[in-house]
Amino acid sequence: MSAALAVKNDGSSAGPSAAEPPPPRVRRRRERSFDETPRWQLYVPLGIYLIFTLIPFYWMFLFSVRPAGSTSLVPWPMTDDHFSKVWNERSFAIFFQNSVLVGVCTLLTTTLVALAGGYALARFRFKIKTPFMLALLCSQFIPGALLLVPLFEIFKNLQMINSLGSVIIAETVFQLPLSIILISGFIRNVPPSLEESAWVDGCSRFRGFCLVVLPLLRPGLIAVGSFAFVHSWNHFLFALMFLSEQDKQTIPVGLNTLIGADSVDLGALAAGGVIAAVPVVIVFAFIQKWLITGFSAGAVKG
């Protein structure tokens, strides 16, 4: 009886063994790898999605290089008349310069402030930490249009109406909540032991952060900064409300000026759209490279 109980209490003897291999049918199902999937099941949906995505871009490019009055579906013969018109006659060179200035300044201010705020949320404990995080999340539900009148009054009292600084401040404020949350998530993935090792070696908190943590945050900083740049580059509402003079307007507002009350110059509008889309495409291609990279790879020695 005791021998039977001993056998029964033995985990490897009572019931099916944990080391017992699964049935052949289950084993074959598990061993089936992704490479065995028919290629058409992968490429056909991706091809349909790619065509659906690229058709608007092709249509915009076609109108931008096709001569006026042409109905050809092939961009040949090509002309640069539309690009020359919007760049020289429609002041798109100034719009492009203003958009670059707003985008770069928004990128820098958003990244620096979000870096400080994200580090505080990730490394310090304080009483209002949870309510503060909740307030940051809830702020994402507030549309910017609701704050246009208060912001206009504030910038008017500060004499910043018709200044690119007003657009930069507004864009930075609306980008900060999400940027702080993202940066704090990146910093939490960096082990605190790395900073503590730097402190033991004589580094201050700021120097240890710059030498140890900051290099590991490079992909996260590039992603957050790039998103801030793209958002400020494409945003139309703030530039429309706070900028009135033509030499202070940005590309989204400049594109709006190409739409007349009675007619629309499709060639010029498409050329302006291509000019506006090229920097965004380049930035997103750059984002993809850094998002794939592991931002903490090699941080901890084995």
Results as ranks from 00 to 15, higher is better:
residue 110 T to E: 04
residue 114 A to E: 01
residue 106 T to M: 12
residue 111 T to N: 04
residue 120 A to C: 10
residue 111 T to R: 03
residue 128 I to H: 13
residue 121 L to P: 02
residue 123 R to H: 03
residue 118 G to F: 01
residue 119 Y to N: 05
residue 121 L to N: 04
residue 132 F to H: 08
residue 133 M to N: 09
residue 128 I to Y: 14
residue 106 T to Q: 11
residue 119 Y to H: 05
residue 133 M to S: 12
residue 104 V to Q: 08
residue 125 R to S: 15
residue 109 T to R: 07
residue 103 G to N: 11
residue 124 F to T: 05
residue 132 F to R: 05
residue 119 Y to P: 07
residue 130 T to V: 15
residue 106 T to C: 13
residue 105 C to M: 10
residue 121 L to S: 03
residue 114 A to W: 02
residue 117 G to S: 06
residue 125 R to L: 07
residue 113 V to Q: 08
residue 134 L to S: 11
residue 113 V to W: 14
residue 106 T to S: 14
residue 132 F to P: 14
residue 111 T to H: 06
residue 116 A to C: 05
residue 123 R to D: 00
residue 112 L to D: 09
residue 111 T to E: 02
residue 133 M to Q: 12
residue 105 C to T: 09
residue 114 A to K: 05
residue 117 G to R: 05
residue 114 A to S: 13
residue 131 P to V: 10
residue 129 K to Y: 14
residue 132 F to Y: 13
residue 126 F to T: 04
residue 122 A to W: 00
residue 121 L to T: 06
residue 113 V to P: 11
residue 116 A to W: 06
residue 108 L to S: 00
residue 103 G to H: 07
residue 111 T to Q: 04
residue 120 A to H: 11
residue 103 G to P: 14
residue 116 A to Y: 07
residue 127 K to D: 12
residue 112 L to A: 14
residue 121 L to M: 07
residue 129 K to H: 15
residue 104 V to H: 04
residue 127 K to W: 15
residue 123 R to V: 00
residue 133 M to Y: 06
residue 118 G to A: 00
residue 112 L to H: 13
residue 129 K to A: 14
residue 123 R to Q: 01
residue 123 R to C: 01
residue 116 A to T: 09
residue 106 T to D: 10
residue 127 K to F: 15
residue 116 A to S: 05
residue 121 L to Y: 06
residue 122 A to I: 00
residue 107 L to S: 02
residue 108 L to G: 00
residue 107 L to N: 01
residue 118 G to L: 00
residue 128 I to F: 15
residue 110 T to V: 10
residue 126 F to A: 05
residue 124 F to A: 03
residue 125 R to A: 14
